[in-house]
């Protein structure tokens, strides 16, 4: 379980994250949504120790991220950030291979290779595994990055806007894969996402942020309520039920 307590982040005097406390349950998909500038990526960054915090605590399996052995944490928690782009010329296979670094420190074992193959297969990259990243389309590259996170084989997977660059087909396939990872492999996934309908269809819990504060956290049904959403986004919403899923119309 990820337990966040009174977490704070300031840039200068501006509070980007203002005393957020929440618990992210194990074995579920939790989506973080909110308007631009709500602090979604910052929150994810602080959970994953890639952004320094100014106060509060983040406990992962009861241990503060600061007290984790770095290498050990890398086997439990993987993060993919929206801004990550690699400017080294490497192939998909190399990139995915790097995901095994916490385990083998670069000397790949038979076991590592199996996991790399599996991750590449999962993201449907088999046919282009030897292509260089700079030769790929945005969507292929995004899938390659995600394959490397899968190869890292962590219990917690944090994804910062992973649907960027994915078209509808790959976006929904990708979320189905996340669903599988959670349902079959008992992973815990936290995802920052813009598309509220994707969040509603595929996640278990939704965290709503606004201006650095926790507006509401709850199950999809609790959050997908026109009144709640109108309050956060300052615009009219219409929530419909289609095939048992809640969909929001906001055009």
């Amino acid at each position: 379980m990820i337990k966040i307590n009174e977490l704070e982040k300031k840039y200068g005097r501006k509070k980007v994250i203002d005393k957020i406390s929440l618990e992210i349950p194990k074995g579920k998909i939790t989506s973080i949504i909110g308007p631009n500038g709500a602090g979604k990526s910052t929150l994810l960054g602080m959970i994953s120790r890639t952004i320094e915090r100014n106060g509060g605590s983040v406990l992962i399996d009861e241990v503060d991220v600061k007290d984790w052995e770095n290498n050990e944490l890398a086997k439990h928690l993987g993060i993919l950030k929206q801004s990550d782009s690699v400017n080294v010329r490497i192939t998909i296979e190399d990139l995915v291979g790097f995901g095994r670094y916490p385990y083998s420190e670069g000397r790949l074992t038979e076991e590592d290779r199996k996991i790399i193959d599996r991750s590449i297969g999962y993201m449907d990259l088999e046919s282009i595994r030897l292509a260089y990243l700079d030769e790929l389309s945005g969507g292929q590259r995004q899938r390659a990055y995600i394959a490397s996170i899968l190869a890292q084989d962590t219990e917690y997977i944090l994804l910062d806007e992973p649907l960027n660059n994915l078209d509808m087909k790959y976006a929904s396939e990708f979320l189905k894969i996340l669903r599988q990872l959670v349902d079959d492999l008992k992973k815990t996934i936290v995802i920052v996402i813009h598309d509220i309908n994707f969040a509603a269809c595929y996640s278990d819990f939704i965290v709503l942020l606004k201006e650095g504060k926790l507006a509401k956290m709850g199950t999809v049904r609790e959050i997908m309520d026109a009144r709640v959403l109108e309050d956060i986004y300052d615009m009219p919403f219409n929530v419909l039920e289609v095939d048992g899923k809640l969909i929001c119309a906001y055009y």
Binding site: S48, T50, E72, S83, D84, F98, Y101, P102
Partner: peptide
Amino acid sequence: NYAVNLGI
């Protein structure tokens, strides 16, 4: 970001 994520 990668390096930190991979435990370095």
